[in-house]
Design a protein around this nucleic acid. Sequence first.
DNA 1: TTTGATATGTTATAATATATCAATACGGAG
DNA 2: CTCCGTATTGATATATTATAACATATCAAA
Lengths: 162, 162
Amino acid sequence: MASGFEAHDHTDCIRTAMARVEKHCAEKSLRLTKSRRRVLELLLSEHKALGAYDILAQLAAEGWNAQPPVAYRALDFLVKNGFAHKLERVNAYVACINPDADHLPSFMICRDCDAVAEARSPAHARAFKAAAEAAGFEIEKTVLEAQGLCPSCQSAENETQR
Amino acid sequence: MASGFEAHDHTDCIRTAMARVEKHCAEKSLRLTKSRRRVLELLLSEHKALGAYDILAQLAAEGWNAQPPVAYRALDFLVKNGFAHKLERVNAYVACINPDADHLPSFMICRDCDAVAEARSPAHARAFKAAAEAAGFEIEKTVLEAQGLCPSCQSAENETQR
DNA sequence: TTTGATATGTTATAATATATCAATACGGAG
DNA sequence: CTCCGTATTGATATATTATAACATATCAAA
């Protein structure tokens, strides 16, 4: 599954995600313009978080004369429409893997290789939501992020310790 | 209880927290220096998140010639030792209300009045941790934040809508 | 085909955070 | 006590992240 740390067919994973976004945009009359599309492709091309300035650098390398607002506007669009998420802990962005409308995404972020996995089970997110609502708090947005070491970087650390 | 949105004896709440931190520092030979102490007091003086530059402004108003590193160093100390937390969603800091050593704090942040409450029940945090560990991810730090409207700002919104 | 709304281009700047290095203060060993 | 190593502070500069503002261009509906 594409949302974990496991290997998968990434080409397919990108294609599927793009198709889904295109469909959604068509249905909702959202304009998936050139810069928005390209930024989404860049995000999809890695299961890594990219900073806005990483994206700008990529665009520049492709010949765009891209100033900061270009990246931030595209990212705002993608985030607002649920095609990407911002990882607050690292000021970076990832493509959304989960097509559900109102999911409460949560992430595991590797501090070593920057890999990002979207957690599968929403149970803890729902529990948080329920706890907040029990306290009379009306949730509009949740930020659920874990930072640490992904499986392969744990192995790597163990290697070097020997 | 001091960690919710309810009214409470705030003077007492500050005093208790300061005493606890002082005790902890004495036991662990940590140096609660002038700037660290003052920054903690500023954080405790509100159940609100303060940005580093808010703190710098306060210090300046009190006659300190405080440059950014002063605030960031004090905040680093407080966060590292568990006396304060950073709210990643809003790039701001709150005093820690929960004296437990290894708690996994989670927060509710009002987007309207900036009030912050630390959630009481760690159940969702533990569930998240368990889910991550089940995926082979080794957690070092969690960021659990909900943004929305606190009870009193919900009422305020309803008033103005009439 | 005008119009209104949405998106882009461009410049500038705001807001948040850290690097660096010299000077000082602190606390334990002798 | 005084020396020494470490932790902390002072001060300047700069890096990183993000937005304001406004002119121009594009789209799609009347």
